[in-house]
Design a binder for these strands. Sequence first.
DNA 1: TAGATTGTTAATCGATTAACAATC
DNA 2: TAGATTGTTAATCGATTAACAATC
Lengths: 213, 213
Amino acid sequence: MSTPKASLPVIRRLPRYFRYISELKAMGKTRVSSSQLAEIMGSTPSQVRQDFNCFGGFGQQGIGYSVDLLYSEIEHLLFPNDHINAVLVGAGSLGATIANFVLNEADGVNLSAIFDNNINLVGKTLHNIRIFNSDDIVEYCQEHKPDLIIACIPKAAAEKFAPVLSATGVKGVWNFTHYDFSIYDKSLIVENVHLRDSLMALSYRISHNTDDE
Amino acid sequence: MSTPKASLPVIRRLPRYFRYISELKAMGKTRVSSSQLAEIMGSTPSQVRQDFNCFGGFGQQGIGYSVDLLYSEIEHLLFPNDHINAVLVGAGSLGATIANFVLNEADGVNLSAIFDNNINLVGKTLHNIRIFNSDDIVEYCQEHKPDLIIACIPKAAAEKFAPVLSATGVKGVWNFTHYDFSIYDKSLIVENVHLRDSLMALSYRISHNTDDE
DNA sequence: TAGATTGTTAATCGATTAACAATC
DNA sequence: TAGATTGTTAATCGATTAACAATC
């Protein structure tokens, strides 16, 4: 709702701004300038000001930015409805770790249910969250209307799951699989975390590093 | 060593090319055109050809690209020395999951040791890999010369670890923490996997999705 | 007022896309 | 030869950076 014009690179910088501003806040700083933020972010004062002006501009000419105001404005941009609701599919090693992560380190995200097709897990809990049968996910989502599905399942399972994804009504997928979830529904917002790709890109850079910087 | 000119966006596309080309290979396809690859990648034929030409060009005019040749060329670009050697710091929930991931799903990466400062874990094994005391990491690295450190430790631990990082002699860090490891050593290659940032960016996009695409 | 720093417009830079000659 | 498709140069597009007027 509202504010249409931030590009993806700007959106991806928002959490980093938020992180650094949180630190400044914790340190008791009340004001910060675009040049100070640029220094921390490894960018330029221009970029900082351009970025913030995508959202209307939070500063005062001649003064700088209020740390508290920046904090609450960016928090509100990232979580306009205070929090989003998520369910997790896949209670394996990765799923369990991600559940743990979301519960402990992702303030604005609620995790309400976990789904798995391993019958031995169904009915049990993981970090106090109930594990349901994967077959029941559409029904569950239609009733509880989560915003987000977190996919920590093997690629083959993702492929089977994808056709019913639209029926769940979620707006996005946090995708840890190598399956492309936007195939059936282009309007779905998919955030990919491709660990293997990340590691391979790192291998390339390590292996071809000419040290010339 | 060699090939200096690929930009970061190009490097980040390499693993995706590799992934899709692996699939084509598995399907028994022997030839592929830049337009077919563009279709799969969600890009343009021009971009595909530009990308490959960063590395000398793997195609034949009038014919297209050999799937087998592309596969082996890109594999060699990503892992010029067949594999890279890594050690893991942090044997918690995330560390255990990542160890499991590297051992089972990251073909070109060897994991030879795990480090943790929890004395109860030291001496035990995780997925058959020996867990050492974190204090011994510099000594271990000087002897075994791994290419890469995988950091799955809390931010405070990362902060304490960072000053000795240079002494390990590794070329890069696969960084799951929110600590900026390049502070002490600018020449270090750091690949960040910031789960919280990724989730926040997704929350932004879900929450401000105007469905206008 | 003078100094500082933003908001915003203009210039630059780099990445993507288009065009086309080379060639299989 | 004609058709297809690459390699490569040129044009476009978008993001970053610089400049400067507005203003605290």
